Amino acid sequence: MMINTLKKTGLMIASIAFATGVAAQKSEPVKVVESKKERKVDVFIGGKPFTSFLYPDSLEKPVLYPLRTANGTVVTRGFPLDPKPGDPTDHPHHIGLWFNFENLNGLDFWNNSYAIHKEKKNLYGWIRTDKVLETKSGTTGVLAYHANWTNQQKDVILEETTRFEFSGTANQRIIDRITTLKASVDATFTDAKDGLLGLRLAHDLQMPATEDQKFTDDKGNVTIVKAGTDKVANGNYLTSAGKTGNDAWSSRGVWCKVYGKMGADSVGIAIIDHPQNPNYPTFWHARGYGLFAANPLGEKIFTNGKSAKNLHLNKGEAVTFRFRVVISNGGQTISSGQLNEMAAEYGKK
């Protein structure tokens, strides 16, 4: 009798644990809302704001901004669109999550911002979004758009078609990005440090400075952060190859995660590379001051000149890049084992 009771109790506990696990992984509904007048698309997951796709004429590229955890914590820097107290004000071109490159046909798309002097603007490229192709709500939310990579005269170098897929659970948010670039003229991505998928982290997720840091913005203003004076930053990096901290920069890996405390919450952001991408696995342009980027086309600087990766497209040719961004929060962030499993699954997609 007691044995049967224990068996029933054990089965009940197992059932409850299983049900709890399933509930924790249950997909939350995604709502995608376009506002043509404001030139933005808002994304809600589980009824809560997650991010917005912004493409006003005042921005030199389209961005996802801000990005939030499942409990609403903003994990991207506020400056320059919505500065928060204590926000670092370096690199005004670092806005939310973006995709561009430092040297395409000699033009710098990455560093373009409002801070560039008018007489120097001709050295910089512009990504102009001209059409939202699709929005869809559901278990997975979809946003697709078309944009042109142009010079200042609006001559088109590349046509971009990007598809975002958004999903989430009680403590996780996922962005799958598929971007196809088709050359309108012969186009060369000359190996450069600044690219390709970039994300600027909230202050808390920066690494604590171990030495004085000096930043000079595009207006020549100098900011110095003294080592040990920043009591907010507590982030760290970890790659699939086991590199941590500053050693993540210039290393290669299938994925890289930044993680830290934001209030009492453990927050992590991981970027996962896709095996079909050029130069897989990517190099990580992951900086302690808050820039978190995947750049497969920066091999020359990341290998100290031992090799280079120049990508050339003849007119009419195209290349596709795929990346997954995973934002987690809760008692602990997503583990290396879970990221390895997710990367394996994503690689089959």
Results as ranks from 00 to 15, higher is better:
S58G: 07
S58W: 12
L59A: 08
E60G: 02
K61E: 01
P62K: 08
P62G: 10
V63Y: 01
V63N: 12
L64N: 13
Y65F: 13
Y65S: 08
Y65M: 11
P66E: 10
R68V: 04
R68D: 01
T69K: 01
T69L: 05
T69R: 09
T69S: 12
N71S: 09
N71G: 11
N71I: 08
G72E: 03
G72P: 03
V74M: 14
V75T: 12
V75P: 02
T76L: 05
R77K: 01
R77F: 00
R77Y: 01
G78T: 01
G78V: 06
G78S: 06
F79D: 01
F79P: 01
P80G: 07
P80W: 04
L81M: 11
L81H: 02
D82K: 13
D82P: 13
D82V: 12
D82S: 15
K84H: 09
K84C: 14
K84Q: 15
P85D: 15
P85M: 08
P85T: 12
G86I: 10
G86C: 07
G86Q: 12
D87H: 11
P88V: 02
P88I: 04
P88Y: 02
T89M: 13
H91I: 09
H91A: 11
H91Y: 05
P92T: 04
P92H: 12
H93A: 05
H93P: 10
H94M: 04
H94S: 05
I95K: 06
I95C: 09
G96H: 04
G96I: 07
G96E: 05
L97R: 15
W98Q: 12
W98F: 05
W98L: 11
W98S: 08
F99R: 13
F99Y: 14
N100H: 11
E102K: 06
N103K: 07
N105K: 07
N105I: 04
D108A: 03
D108S: 11
D108G: 03
F109G: 00
F109Q: 05
W110D: 10
N111Q: 12
N111K: 13
N111H: 07
N112V: 00
S113M: 00
Y114A: 13
Y114T: 10
A115C: 14
H117F: 07
H117Q: 15
H117V: 11
K118M: 09
K118R: 15
E119Q: 14
E119S: 14
E119H: 14
E119M: 15
K120W: 06
N122W: 09
N122F: 06
L123D: 10
L123W: 06
Y124K: 00
